[in-house]
Every structure is written in C-alpha cells, then in structure tokens.
Write a protein that binds this DNA or RNA. Structure first.
Lengths: 160, 160
DNA sequence: GATTCAGTGGACAATGTGCTCAGTCTTCGC
DNA sequence: GCGAAGACTGAGCACATTGTCCACTGAATC
C-alpha cells in the first residue's frame, strides 16, 4: 500500500503522543477531523496499522535477558509442529523460519542467564529440535521501531 | 516489577480490543473504573507499558522481506558509532550487540530480495563494519508477542 | 462537460474522561 | 488487639471527544 506525507505525519504524531485523540491530531496537522478519521480507517483497513495495543517492556517485568536462538530441526514432519510447540512457551516471543545454516530463529527472553538455560532446555525438548545455537543480546542500541520506515515510505526526512 | 492476575487480564483485554477505553474495561473485568485507571497508571509509571502507539506492519507498506544481519565490526572505536550510523538507515528496524561469533545483530526489512541487497550494501558501507552475514526470514509462524509473557507473569494460563 | 473522489466545516446526541470524595476492606507492624 | 496505610468501591461533576450525519468545494479522470 502507498502512504503519503500526511499519513506518515499522522502515524508519527500518534506514535509520539498516543493519547491525544483524533480531534487533537486534526488540529496539530492542520486538517479536518474527518480527514484524520478517514486516513486512520484506511490504514487500518489496508493492514498498515494492525492495532493500538499497549506496548509491553519485558525487561520491566523482570525478563532482563534477551537471546536469539537458532534451531536445527529434523526435517521429517516439517516445521509447523515445531512452531506450534514453541508457541506454547511464553518466553518465546517470536519465531521465524530462515535461510542459511539454521532452520528456525526465535527470540526468547528470560529472567537471568540461569533462567535462559531453563528456557533453552524447554526449546530443546520440543519434538523435532535437534540442536540450538544461542546468542545473547548484551545491549540494544536501536530498539524495535517502524517509524523510520513509515517516514521513508511517506517521503519524509527519516530523523526529525 | 510484579504483575498480578488483574493486571494481566487488563493488558490482555486492551491488547485484544484497544479502543474500548477505561470505562468499558472496568465493566468487563468487574472492577471499579478507578482501579483500572490506577493499574494502568502504575504499569505506565513502572515502565511495563511503554506506550499505546499504532502498530505498523512493514509488509503492508510493501516491505515484504525481513532479514537478520549479523555484523562483524572493527573493534577500534567501539560499537556506538556503528550503531549510530545504522540508526540512520530506515530499513534497519532493530540493532543489538551480541555474544558469540558476531558483534551485532540487526533486523532489516526490504521491498524485495534485490532491495535487500541495496540495504545490506548500505550497512556494509558503514564505517567500522567489516563483514556481514544475512539470513532471510521465509515465514513467521509466531509473530512478535508479549501477551504470553504477561499472562505467565500474572499467573494466568498462557493460552486460553 | 459530467462524474468521482478526497477534503472541508459544521452540527447533533451520546459517551467517556479526568478529577474528587467519602466509605470499606485487608494487610501490616507494634 | 489496635491503629495506620494502601487498595478498592461507588458516586458525582464539568468538560471534551467520539461517531455519525450533512452540504459544499476543488481536483482529477474520462
């Protein structure tokens, strides 16, 4: 889907101050309220905006350790049953199937390095998982973001 | 921070239907409105809830390709200047410093495999980056989530 | 020249919000 | 056992926002 200037500014504004509401957005952007509503509806309909759920910081819940675990799986039954089992582990936040050396990549969190061992053991215990390789995230200089992308897609300067 | 049953149910409810508002939450959960407000304020103050920004789907914007790029960097100036440069690339959604074979791991998106090459070239051009290894995410059986974590931390069943 | 689409500016009733208050309950320390 | 502190309740209020209409304008399309 194509995004224009106004869409990008709208998303940026809502990302910065989510609680301001449609009316305040229209004032800040200098357009009519109906326009803002229409843009938001359109982006929601097209799947660009998937929701407005509360953003949770796992670290604030005590899950200080983040790791990326590459999985090698036995290719007999495919990866679907493996993914289904991984989905049952709360600490597994994300699972991808990948190209290259491994078969799957998942992001996991844990309360400590010792706790990470427990989580990895849970993963290894999943039927079909042959071997895992883990890398621990020491620091996160750039936390997950999509705003730069939206700005770029909307033809705005990336940073301001 | 510690989360209880009610907090977890509240976050789950807001994640499922973000637009219902505080009053409707209090009705659904069977508690007073002030309680819901107090819980949300407390979680926001403790950093558990970092915001309510619109969730953007890069794929819906045309960025269909997701890849994880491991960076090897020259360790003379440290990783901070590298991270700063990476932050300027819109398609770089996330950067971590890591243990193990590589030095940094970043998540990038692109419009196509050819476009991914362009993005990787941008990364390689960053001062201090020596070499990169990329894996492409073919499928995402478990998209990023934190709800399971919240449910677990709040003492609820992970799945219902 | 006619049609279509996006945006404007205004209106309306209905609802939710932020804020405050007094009262109840449980837990904790002494 | 008793007082204090903290959390929750239920209620009230003024105010702003929402969802939903409408008629009108301007630009682009054919």
């Amino acid at each position: 889907m194509t995004i224009d200037h106004l869409d990008a500014r709208l998303v940026a504004l809502l990302s910065a101050e989510p609680k301001i509401g449609v009316l305040e957005c229209s004032r800040r952007l200098g357009v009519a309220r109906g326009t803002v509503q229409a843009r938001l509806d359109r982006m929601a309909a097209k799947g660009v905006i998937t929701g407005y759920g509360p953003d949770i910081d796992p670290a604030a819940l005590g899950f200080d350790v983040t790791a990326f675990v590459t999985l090698h799986i036995r290719q007999v039954a495919g990866h679907v049953p493996v993914a289904d089992q991984l989905a049952l582990i709360p600490e597994v936040l994300e699972v991808h199937t990948i190209t290259g050396g491994g078969d799957m990549l998942c992001r996991v969190v844990a309360r400590s390095n010792a706790d990470l061992q427990r989580v990895i053991d849970l993963i290894v215990d999943v039927q079909g998982v042959v071997r895992t390789e883990s890398v621990i995230a020491l620091d996160t200089p750039v936390p997950y973001r999509t705003l730069t992308l939206v700005r770029a897609a909307g033809g705005l300067n990336p940073a301001p």
